[in-house]
Amino acid sequence: MQRGKYQPLAFRNTLDYDANFVKVIVLTGLDNKQNPERRTPLGRKKRTYGTNLPGPRITYTTTTQDGDQQCGSSVQLPQASYFALQLPYTCFGLGRTPNFVDQLTVGLGSKLRNWTQLIPNSQIIVVPKPLNEPSHWKAQLFVTPSKLILMSVVALGGTCLVIVFIILVLYIKEKREDKQERLQESHRFHFDAM
């Protein structure tokens, strides 16, 4: 190798698109009976959801921009005692598809529960309580807004301002025409008055 032949280079990725994801965590739903009931500042009962649950199977299905079916499946915390420790949640990368997640299925043993039409770029917390009644399992959706939402609000606001400006211009024009018409009417000679 010759000295000075190789140079380190850096590439800055400036692609301006959102990569969508869905993050799911399944909790135990256990609470500590020894602690007194806690209240929020507004007086509502504070919810406790327990800790992350090892073993639930999480599957999602969505439609890509090309119209193809995209599926993914994972197990939450397949292991946590040796090698690299896993994250307490399951994260699915959806790519550039801005579509809803058509179906999310959470399974514990032989029990399954489906949720439909979930928003991408969100975190879903599932509380499977009671375990033997999947119809009572709760899911809470926490949305992470992206830059596209801000751009959409700006575009909507700009459109509304343009429409308001057009309405004002037409309103002022109509008022002027009405004033001129009244002025011409008052200057017109009425033969009926003779």
Rank of each mutant, 00 (worst) to 15 (best):
V162C: 15
S110E: 11
L168N: 15
N114M: 03
L170T: 03
V153K: 12
I149F: 14
A139E: 01
P145D: 06
Y171S: 09
L131T: 05
L148P: 03
K173N: 12
I166L: 15
P128D: 00
W137C: 02
E174G: 04
L104K: 00
V169R: 10
I172A: 12
F165G: 14
M151V: 05
V164N: 13
C160T: 15
R113V: 04
T144L: 07
N114I: 05
L108R: 08
T116G: 03
L156T: 05
G158I: 03
I172T: 07
F142H: 09
I125Y: 01
V169A: 09
L104H: 01
Y171D: 09
P134N: 03
I119G: 02
G158T: 08
I172G: 06
T116K: 05
I163L: 12
K111G: 03
L118H: 03
L118A: 07
M151S: 11
L104F: 05
L104M: 04
G109M: 14
I167F: 13
V154S: 07
T116P: 00
Q123I: 04
L131W: 00
S146H: 02
T105Q: 02
P145S: 04
M151N: 14
N121H: 06
P120K: 03
I167E: 11
N132H: 10
Q123R: 04
P145H: 09
L161I: 12
V127I: 08
K111H: 08
F142W: 13
I149N: 07
G157T: 15
L170D: 04
S146F: 04
K138T: 06
C160M: 15
R113E: 05
L168P: 08
P120R: 01
V164D: 12
L141T: 07
L104C: 02
G157I: 10
S135Q: 11
Y171A: 11
V153Y: 12
A139K: 00
I166R: 14
G107S: 05
L104A: 01
L161A: 09
S146M: 10
I167N: 14
S122E: 03
K138H: 05
Q117M: 05
S152P: 04
L108A: 08
N114P: 00
K175G: 14
F165K: 13
K138E: 08
H136S: 12
P134Q: 04
T159E: 10
L161T: 07
T116A: 04
K175Y: 13
I167R: 11
G109N: 11
L150H: 11
S135H: 04
I172N: 07
S110A: 15
S110I: 12
V154Q: 11
V153D: 06
V143R: 06
P128M: 00
K129G: 02
A139M: 06
M151W: 08
P145L: 07
L141M: 13
S146R: 06
V126A: 03
